[in-house]
Design a protein around this nucleic acid. Structure first.
Lengths: 94, 94
DNA sequence: ATCATTTGGTTTATACTATAAACCGATTTA
DNA sequence: TAAATCGGTTTATAGTATAAACCAAATGAT
């Protein structure tokens, strides 16, 4: 049986990736609201996705406020699709 | 966003449930081979599924050898289907 | 007959993970 | 000025997955 990429087999990271698959970019606040997660948890999981090269993270400013913008990378896209394929084996459906 | 049932959101438990969804019953050895897991890990995860009421476990004999037979329960079936539905949200593939 | 190996598991130790609480510096509001 | 809010990060902790170590019974080898 194919392995389920453990980096993606996590509720919050999967939710983040799912959002980023369907949008050009998303900032920290938007992701926190969309995934209904706490800022702490989100921060940690974004770091892991970034460390894996699955997303890019850019910190900038809007006026005087910081803004953290995330995008999925090509590698992240591939990994997500592979994860979905592997999952299909486990579910025997979809 | 719907929660992903943490009892099912585990690689091995999900694999076990997936097998049991498609077969009338399965014994320990078959599950170990089919899921390519170690006996220790499988034993622990079967207990958890049993404790949750998702599977039944019957220990008997074939000749002089012990045989542990598992079956998915109605509750397990429901939980599995709900898990799949929730997952679809995360994967955006309705 | 006895020693070693295999079979079918269970228990236990460990390393990893997810998560929220606590925190921080800057900014806005009172 | 003080207090509350915003946008996060760091850290402490509980929970989880996993394999290693173990066990008792059965089988195989000498």
């Amino acid at each position: 049986m194919k392995e389920l990429n453990p980096l993606l087999h996590s509720q919050l990271r999967l939710a983040v990736m799912s959002v980023l698959m369907n949008v050009e970019e998303a900032d920290f606040v938007y992701l926190r609201e969309k995934t209904e997660s706490t800022a702490g948890n989100l921060s940690v999981q974004l770091d892991k996705l970034h460390a894996a090269g699955y997303i890019s993270i850019e910190k900038g400013f809007v006026g005087k406020k910081t803004r953290t913008v995330c995008q999925i990378t090509a590698k992240g896209r591939d990994a997500f699709e592979e994860y979905v394929d592997a999952l299909k084996q486990y579910l025997n459906i979809l």
